[in-house]
């Protein structure tokens, strides 16, 4: 299945790209995606300095947490902690 991952703001520099489609085995969870991100992009989660959303909801707010099963077409966004303008 394909997960769309976007690297926003300063994360774009760390990941070396703005976005990409990540292929994961069917039934993968957020935990597997986090593993892939750490290995392939050097982005380690959880990190108090980073924020991550799945379809617009914070990962930390999902009832299943990192056990949340992903579905093809899910949108993930990663960015540094925001602090107000």
């Amino acid at each position: 299945m394909t997960i769309q991952v976007r690297y926003l703001s300063a994360l774009r520099d760390q990941a070396g790209r703005r976005e990409e489609a990540v292929e994961l085995p069917e039934g993968s969870r957020l935990a597997e995606l986090a593993e892939w991100l750490a290995l392939q992009r050097g982005v380690r989660l959880p990190d108090p300095g980073l924020m991550a959303t799945l379809n617009g909801r914070g990962w930390t707010q999902l009832p299943e947490g990192m056990d949340r099963t992903l579905a093809s077409g899910d949108q993930v966004a990663l960015f540094p902690v925001v602090g107000g303008g």
Partner: peptide, 17 residues
């Protein structure tokens, strides 16, 4: 990130949200 980008760093994030 504030030193590098200032508060404009949030533009893309707030839009994406």
């Amino acid at each position: 990130n504030h030193t590098k980008f200032g508060t404009p760093q949030y533009l893309e994030v707030i839009n994406e949200l």
